[in-house]
Structure formats: C-alpha cells, structure tokens
Amino acid sequence: MTEPDRDLEGQLEHLTRWNGGKEAPALWRTALEASSAPARARMPSRVVLGLAAMVVLTALGAWIGIGTLGSARSTPVGADASPMARGPAADAFGQASASDTTVRAIQRSATIELRTAEVRSVFEAALALADPSLGEYVQSSSATEVRGEAVLRIASHRLDAVLRMLRGLEGVESVHREEQAATDATDQRIDLDARIANESRIEAELLDLVGSRPDAPLADVLRVREALAEVRLNIELLQAQRASLNERVALATVRVRVERVRVRERAADDAGGFVHDLGVAFARGGRDFARSITAFVEFLVGGLIVWVPLAIAGFFVYRTLRWRATWA
C-alpha cells in the first residue's frame, strides 16, 4: 500500500467515528420513551374518529344497498336485510363478519421497466429497496450483464414510495414502461370468513353432540369423530387460504426489470422527432396487425358451434337442390 493510499484509508476510517470518541447522546432512551409513550399521544382526534365513523357507516350503507338491490328491493333495508346478504353462515357469527367487511382487502401489484447504462449497480440498488424490518423481501431475482429481473414483495402502503425511489435511482436513464394494478379481494375474504364461521359452528355442534351422549353406541361415536376430523381439516384449509390472502394483501408485488440502453435506441432518442416517431408508428402498426389476426382466429374458433351446423345445413340444401334439378 502506498503512502497516499494509507492516508486515504486513515481518513476513511475517521469518517465513521462519532466525533473522535465523544459521548453518544443516548438516543435509545428517547426512542424507548417515544415507543412506550401512552396511547393517547398517538390517539387520533375526535374529528378524525368522527370522519372515520362516517366513512365506515357510508361504506356499510352502500354495501347493504347494493346487496338488497333487484330482487330484494321490497325487503326493508335494516337489521333484517343484512344477514340475508351475508348468507346463513354469517347469522351465527354476524358481528365478526360485519366488522371485517368494512375494511377492503386490495391486492396491489406493479411492473416497472428501467433503462440504464449501469445494469448491475441499478439492479442492486433496486433489490436493496426491500426493507426486511418491515417483512419485505426479494421473491426472485436474476441478472446478466445486459438485463436484470426481480420480483420484490413490498409493504402495500410503501408501494408508491418504492416506485418513486425506483424511478429516481442513480444511473436510471429512462422509465420504459410502468404499470399498476389492484384487485379487490374483499368478496373472497368475506366468503372465506363465512365458510370458516360455518365450519366452526358445525364443529361446535358435533362436539356438543359427543359430550351430551356419553352412552351412545361405539359406531355412532366413531362416525361423529370422523365427521369432526373432516370439519377440522376444512377449517384448517380455509384458515390457510385466509392467511395466504392476508399476506398477498399486506405485501404488494413489484416486478422490476432493468435493461441496458441499446445504442440504436439511444441514437433514435437523440435523433428525436421523425426517426423516433417512425419507430413508434411501425411498432404500433405491428401490434394492431397482430391484434387483428388474433381477433379473426377467435372469431373462427369461437364461432365453430354456429359454423358447423350452418355448413351441414348448407350441404344438405345444396344436395337437395341438385337432386331436384337432376330429376326435374
């Protein structure tokens, strides 16, 4: 190591020293006090609570309204109507289901394609955006010198911030494509809740039955136990589905694709105007042509149920006409 190198290394080591040994300001104490502060510090004000209650009531009202439209138009909207909308399983466990339906379960996902001259560094910076302390992780990743692809699982509430950070990563030259999608899984969750509640009710009834008839014949007891095992299996399956759904809702999926900027593409961008527009026009033309072919094939295949009887009928008409012409 040369003399200047040693100097540089020494300076670098100094950069990570807290003022050359000065006493640390015991920030852990402040953090502990902030974390253990009474809930009132973080309690929303009455106005916020009032607004939240209004939103919840409006959503509930809208849901009940939608559920009773049409055939149930004559049914009065109120306490009697909601159990019908929720189904029989919700009757017994109505309270739990009602509280859950007010919170929507939205699965969010996004795709972003970045163009850069430094694929490796941008790709690594993108992977580092997943914050493990929030339960985020990199689901899959693969990279070459010219391209990197990864699927990040990001806390849903951070999706917009992460997309913003991806767009602003150092070395990113352009965002080639960006898409976002959201799927409402509330119905699926309500359905799962209702089924779990129903199975739990059956399980409770079966357990009561076993408990209330200690002198029942062995064959009957075994039959009830078999039914119990089946119900328990169903409950666990449904609970696993519910947990999986919750995980998908809590963590948004971000597909990141980092590609090296092609020299030709960059030249076209630099040339701007006409060349670029020409390229875009060709690409659009090709896409529209492919769409037309697809539509035609769909028309042919999807209409087979009509085309085949028509062809057979046409054949018989043709034969009949020809026969008549021959014998006339």
Binding site: L15, T16, R17, W18, N19, A24, L27
Partner: peptide, 11 residues
C-alpha cells in the same frame, strides 16, 4: 452499539 451506529450514520 450506539456509538458505532452513530459513526456509521454520520458517514
């Protein structure tokens, strides 16, 4: 750790 954390954060 706090001393070293502060050093790293300072850098």
């Amino acid at each position: 750790h706090e001393h070293r954390l502060l050093g790293l954060a300072l850098g």
